[in-house]
Structure formats: structure tokens, C-alpha cells
Simulated assay, not measured.
Amino acid sequence: MVIIYSCFGSAHSSVLAAAIHTNMLPVDRIPETGEIINLPYYDKTPSDLIGTPFYFGKDERGNFIYILGTGKARQVIENMLKSFINLEGLEGEVIIKNTLQYVNVLVRVGGYLSRRLGLVFPGRLMTVYGLKKVYPDFVEVVKKVKEEIGIAYK
């Protein structure tokens, strides 16, 4: 099975969800700032790679976990993926979970500062602070995805 966590730029919320899913981040506490900043792909994906899925790792059942930035074309990219999945007969083999709906204004502004304006240090810290505030929501999202694919949540 393939699970794709998507967000605007595959740099923040999708990375966080994928890290929780692959057990790189804890589910029983809010991670430290360094734990988030040091995640693969965190706040590093260039804008010209939006639309490119990035392999993040495997979960405890060997499912493949990806992150995907959709930019302003979220609906178009998701429709295209769903159409492809349908055409190839892969229904039930691929889950696409949009994580952008769980971010707050701190993550949005921080991402803009870091990725668009090049103000990496303040922007990155702002995204981490914002994600820590909604971290339990991300744990819950991943829990639901794992339950959907038959993984008992720890």
C-alpha cells in the first residue's frame, strides 16, 4: 500500500504527518524543535519540485509513505492522482491525505517567509512553533489513516 501525505509545498505539514506515520516522531508528547527541524525534507523542498512525490519511508507494515506538494493546484493534482489510481485499478492500494487543512496561520506565514522570501531562520522557527501547537491534531490524523489500513495504534 502507498500512503501520500500532501500539503502546499511538501515542506512542513506533510513532512510532519509522514514522520509521525513512520514513527520518526512520538505520538505521546510534543516533539522538541530539533526533532522537527532535523526531519528529512523539512522546510527544504524547492518550489520547482511541487507536484513531485518524495519517498519518505516505510511504516511498521512495510507500506510506502510519500509526501507531495500540490501548490495552488491541489485539486487538479489530487484529481489527476485519483483518476490514475482508478484507471490502473489501484483503488484501495493508495491513500492520499491532505494535511494542509490542519495547519494554522503561524505555519502558513512561516512557510511563506522561509520558502518564498528566503527568510529561513525566522520562518522555519515559526513553522515549528505553529506545528507544535496543532501536533495532537496531526497525531489524530495519522491514527485514523493507520486504523484505515489496519494498523493498531500505539
Results as ranks from 00 to 15, higher is better:
Tyr5Gly: 02
Ser6Met: 06
Gly9Cys: 07
Ser10Pro: 03
Ala11Val: 00
Ala18Lys: 08
Ala18Arg: 07
Ala19Gly: 04
Ile20Phe: 12
Asn23Cys: 10
Leu25Ala: 08
Leu25Trp: 11
Arg29Ala: 05
Thr33Ile: 10
Asn38Pro: 09
Leu39Trp: 14
Tyr42His: 13
Tyr42Ala: 05
Lys44Ala: 12
Ser47Ile: 11
Asp48Ser: 12
Leu49Gln: 11
Ile50Val: 15
Gly51Ile: 07
Thr52Cys: 14
Phe56His: 07
Phe56Leu: 04
Lys58Arg: 11
Asp59Pro: 14
Arg61Ile: 07
Arg61Cys: 10
Gly62Tyr: 06
Asn63Glu: 07
Ile65Met: 08
Tyr66Cys: 09
Ile67Cys: 07
Ile67Ala: 05
Thr70Gln: 12
Thr70Tyr: 00
Gly71Phe: 05
Ala73Asp: 04
Arg74Glu: 14
Arg74Ala: 10
Gln75Gly: 08
Val76Cys: 03
Glu78Trp: 06
Lys82Leu: 14
Ser83Ile: 04
Ile85Lys: 05
Leu87Met: 12
Glu88Trp: 09
Leu90Arg: 07
Glu91Thr: 11
Gly92Asp: 06
Val94Tyr: 13
Ile95Gly: 07
Lys97Pro: 02
Lys97Ile: 13
Asn98His: 03
Thr99Leu: 03
Gln101Gly: 09
Tyr102Asp: 15
Val103His: 05
Asn104Trp: 01
Leu106Lys: 06
Val107Phe: 04
Val107Glu: 05
Ser114Thr: 01
Arg115Ile: 00
Arg115Val: 00
Arg116Thr: 14
Gly118Asp: 04
Phe121Gly: 06
Pro122Glu: 02
Gly123Phe: 05
Gly123Gln: 04
Arg124Ala: 04
Leu125Glu: 11
Leu125Met: 14
Met126Phe: 03
Thr127His: 08
Val128His: 11
Val128Phe: 05
Val128Gly: 12
Lys132Met: 14
Lys132Trp: 05
Lys133Gln: 15
Lys133Cys: 08
Lys133Gly: 09
Pro136Val: 01
Val141Ser: 02
Val142Thr: 13
Val142Asn: 10
Val145Asn: 04
Glu147Asp: 09
Ile149Thr: 02
Tyr153Phe: 15
Tyr153Glu: 00
Lys154Ala: 05
